[in-house]
Nucleic acid binder design. Structure first.
Lengths: 226, 226
DNA sequence: CTTCTACAATAAGGATCTTCATAGAAATTA
DNA sequence: TAATTTCTATGAAGATCCTTATTGTAGAAG
C-alpha cells in the first residue's frame, strides 16, 4: 500500500511517514506542488494525503489536475483552516475525505484505511476467491475458514498479487512493492523467490494450490479458478 | 517491445537495461551519437531514451535528424540539467516526454509505458477482437474471458501482429521485433515458424482459430473476423 | 545466551528458445 | 496435369535462461 504525503511542514510530514510506515504503508513525501504532480503523474498511489495550503500554489488546483487526468488514487484533504468552504469544494472536486489540523495520527490512519477499502476494494474489506479469503481489515488470510499464518511480506505479496488478479506482475514491481522505498540495485531480485516459495507452500499446505503462477521470464500472476 | 537507450554513462545505461529487461523489454544500448543514429536508421524502436548531453554532439540534433527521417519511434528525453529550455525545445522537436536525472527506474518505466500506449495503441491498454482480448497492461490474453497462457515470445508475437491487424508483416520484421540487435544476419528465420506454430496451437485450443493467416511468400497477417 | 524467524545467496532442476532435419503445401514451369 | 521449386509446418534435441530448492546469515524474540 503506497501513500503520498503532500505536505510542506518537514516535521509533520516526517512524523506522518514514520507513523504510517509503522502501519506497514509505503510512504513517499512531496514537499511542494510540482514534485507532487510529477509523482502522481507517474505512480499510482493507494491514497494521497493532500495539504491544501501548499507553498507553491493552491492544493485544490492540484486536486483538479489530478482528477482531470482520470487518476483513481484516493485523496484525503488536509487543511489547517477550519474552513467549511474548502472542505466542500474539496469533496466536490472528488476528494474522498477531509481532515483538519491538528489531527491525531491514529485518526488519519483510520481514515486512510477507510478510503483505501472503498476505492481499491470497492467497499469490501475482504477479498474472496472460492476457499481463499483475504481479510484486509484484519490483515489475515483464511482458507476453508481456517486461518493461515503469513509473515508480513508474504501477506503483502499475496494481497498485491490478488488485487491484480489475472495480470502478470513483474519482479521489479514486486520488489518495489515489498521493499518500501526505491531500491537502486535491481540486480538482486532473488529474494523474491523465497517469499513466493514460502507463500505458495503455506497456501498449498492449507489446501489451496495453483493460485499463484510463475510466468516464465515475465513475473507472477494470481489466477483464481472461478 | 524494443527500447534504445542512448546514454554514455556505462553504469547508468546498464542498470536501465537490467531493469527494463525485467519488465520484458528488449533493450539495446548506444553509448554515443553515431552508434545511436546508425541503429535508429536501421531498426524501429518502440521507445528511444535519449540523453541530451552526449559526448559526441548535441542530443537535440539527433532528435532533429530522427524526426527529419520521419521515424515514428517514441522519444523520451533524459537530461542532467534541470533546464526548462531544453525540455521545451525537446518537446517542440517532437519528443513525447522528458525526465530529469537523477530519476527512479520505476518512474522511467512508467513513462515508457505511457509513451508506448499513446503512440502504439492510441491510449488504450486493452485490445479487443471479438472473443479475443489482449490486456497490454497485464501482459495477459483472454479468450472468452478465460486466460490463455503464452510465453513471452508468443505474447510479443501476438501483440505485434494484432497491433498491425489486417496488414501483412514480413518475417524479417517479426524477427527484428522479437530479437535484440545481436542477430544482424537474419539467415535463420526458422525460429519464427516455431513460435507461430505454438501460438496458433494455443489460440485454437482455446477456441480461437484462423486469426493468424500465413501469406505465402510474404509473411503473416492478423485478421479479426468482425 | 539460546532459539527461532525472516531474509539473502548459491546450486540444482525445468521451461523456453533456437536450431536442425524432414514432411507438407503452394506457386511456378513445362 | 505433372514435375519442380520455393516456402511453410512439424517434431525433436541441445543450449540457454529462469525458477525452485537448499543452504547460510543476520536479527528478533524468548
Amino acid at each position: 500500500m503506497k501513500i503520498l504525503i503532500v505536505e510542506d511542514e518537514i516535521e509533520l510530514s516526517n512524523s506522518m511517514a514514520t507513523y504510517l510506515r509503522g502501519e506497514s504503508y509505503l510512504c513517499e513525501i512531496a514537499h511542494d506542488h510540482r514534485t507532487a504532480l510529477d509523482k502522481i503523474e507517474v505512480f499510482d498511489y493507494d491514497c494521497i494525503l493532500l495539504d491544501i495550503s501548499l507553498p507553491d500554489g493552491n492544493g485544490l488546483n492540484l486536486l483538479r489536475q489530478l482528477k482531470a487526468n482520470n487518476k483513481t488514487d484516493g485523496v484525503i484533504i488536509i487543511s489547517a483552516r477550519n474552513s467549511i468552504d474548502d472542505k466542500i469544494e474539496g469533496l466536490n472536486l472528488g476528494a474522498d475525505d477531509y481532515i483538519s489540523k491538528p489531527f491525531h495520527l491514529s485518526e488519519l490512519s483510520a481514515r486512510i484505511k477507510a478510503v483505501i477499502r472503498r476505492r481499491r476494494f470497492e467497499g469490501t474489506s475482504v477479498l474472496v476467491f472460492n476457499e481463499l479469503v483475504i481479510d484486509i481489515e484484519g490483515k489475515s488470510v483464511f482458507i476453508d475458514d481456517k486461518p493461515v499464518d503469513l509473515t508480513r511480506k508474504e501477506y503483502d505479496l499475496l494481497l498485491y498479487l490478488a488485487s491484480n488478479k489475472n495480470r502478470i506482475i513483474s519482479k521489479n514491481a514486486i520488489a518495489e512493492h515489498l521493499s518500501g522505498d526505491e531500491i537502486m540495485s535491481y540486480d538482486n531480485l532473488d529474494f523474491i523467490y523465497s517469499h513466493i516459495k514460502n507463500l505458495k507452500r503455506k497456501l498449498s499446505m492449507a489446501g489451496c494450490s495453483d493460485y499463484i503462477k510463475s510466468m516464465y521470464g515475465m513475473g507472477y500472476k494470481f489466477e483464481p479458478k472461478s
